[in-house]
C-alpha cells in the first residue's frame, strides 16, 4: 500500500512570492526572515521524499461560483493550469502548469464516496493560490503530480468544522489503502485569524492574536477534541471575517490524527496575519 510520508499544514500567503523575489528598495524588511523560515519548512517536505502531493485548499471565487457551489471537490485531470488573472494583478503570481495524478484522484473519489463523503469532482480545474502558494513555498520545482482537494470555507452555508476533521481522517485512511508503492504527502493550507474586506483588515498583526495563540496550540498538540469544543461556524466570525479558513487546518489535524503532536512547528507574526507552519511524519521522522 501507499505510504503517507508527511502531513503538512500551512497558512497560504499570496504576498510571499513577490516579497521573496523582490530586490533592492522593493524588497520588504520582513522578506529575509520570511524566506529563512520558508526554506526551513520546505526542508521538512523534501526529506520525506514524496512522489505525489495531495493538496487541500479552497477556491476563492475563481472557477467555483455561487450558481453551482460544491462543498468538497476533488480534481481528476492529467494537468492543472494555475493562478488567475486577478492573482497575477494583485499579488504578482505567475501562471503555472502542474501535473495531475489521475489514478490517485480516482481512488480518492471512489473510496471517499464509499466512505460517505459525496465528493464533487472536476476534470478541468484551474487551481488558485490556496494550492499554488504551498507549491511555491514547499516545492518550487513544481515537479510532482498533485491531487487537488477543494473545500468550501468561503461561501456560506459551509460544512460544520467536525466535517472537515472527518474528511481529513478519511483522507488518511483512503491514502493508506491505495494499492500503490508511491510515497504520498498531504499538504493543506488555511488561515489563522484573518479579516479581508472588513474594518479589522491589514492591521499591524492578525485581527485576533489570542485566537492565533490558541489555534497554534491546538494544531501543534493535535488537540482535535479541544479545538472542536471551542470552534463553531458561529464562533469563527469573532476572530476575523475570513477565519473560516481555519477549518482547512482542522482538516489537516484530522489527517494527522487525534493527539498527534506536530513534529515541526514554526510561526511568523507578519503584519495583518500570523503565518504558521506544521509538519507531521506519520511513520517517524525520515533520516
Amino acid at each position: 500500500m501507499a505510504e503517507l510520508v508527511a502531513v503538512i499544514a500551512s497558512t497560504h500567503h499570496p504576498f510571499y512570492y513577490r516579497a521573496s523575489t523582490a530586490t533592492g528598495p522593493e524588497r520588504p524588511p520582513f522578506a529575509d526572515e520570511w524566506v529563512r523560515k520558508i526554506e526551513a519548512f520546505r526542508a521538512t517536505l523534501t526529506k520525506a521524499r514524496p512522489d505525489v502531493l495531495v493538496m487541500v485548499g479552497s477556491d476563492h471565487f475563481h472557477q467555483l461560483w455561487l450558481d453551482n457551489m460544491p462543498q468538497f471537490l476533488v480534481g481528476k485531470a492529467p494537468f492543472y493550469d494555475a493562478n488567475f488573472h486577478n492573482e497575477e494583478r494583485e499579488f504578482g503570481l505567475p501562471k503555472m502548469l502542474l501535473k495531475g495524478h489521475e489514478e490517485l484522484s480516482a481512488h480518492v473519489l471512489r473510496a471517499g464516496l464509499d466512505a460517505g463523503f459525496d465528493l464533487a469532482f472536476s476534470n478541468e480545474l484551474r487551481i488558485d493560490h490556496s494550492i499554488t502558494c504551498p507549491i511555491i513555498t514547499l516545492r518550487p520545482e513544481a515537479d510532482l503530480p498533485i491531487v487537488p482537494v477543494y473545500t468550501n470555507i468561503f461561501a456560506p452555508p459551509l460544512p460544520q468544522p467536525k466535517r472537515f476533521v472527518q474528511l481529513g481522517t478519511a483522507l488518511r485512511e483512503i491514502i493508506e489503502s491505495w494499492p500503490s508503492d508511491q510515497r504520498v504527502a498531504v499538504i493543506g493550507t488555511g488561515h489563522l485569524s484573518l479579516e479581508l474586506g472588513g474594518p479589522r483588515q491589514f492591521g499591524p498583526h492578525g485581527p485576533d492574536p489570542d485566537f492565533d495563540r490558541r489555534a497554534v496550540g491546538w494544531i501543534a498538540g493535535g488537540d482535535i477534541e479541544e479545538c472542536l469544543a471551542e470552534v463553531s461556524l458561529e464562533s469563527l466570525h469573532a476572530p476575523g471575517n475570513a477565519t473560516h479558513g481555519f477549518m482547512d487546518f482542522m482538516l489537516m489535524m484530522g489527517v494527522a490524527g487525534e493527539g498527534r503532536k506536530a513534529d515541526y512547528v514554526d510561526t511568523l507574526d507578519l503584519f495583518h496575519t500570523m503565518e504558521a507552519y506544521f509538519t507531521w511524519y506519520p511513520n517517524g521522522e525520515p533520516a
Binding site: R89, E90, F154, A155, G197
Partner: peptide, 16 residues
C-alpha cells in the same frame, strides 16, 4: 458591506 455583499469580492475589485 452593510448589504451583505461578499467582502472578498468587494475588496478584490476595489483594490483593482
Amino acid at each position: 458591506f452593510e448589504l451583505g455583499a461578499h467582502p472578498f469580492l468587494t475588496l478584490t475589485l476595489f483594490i483593482a
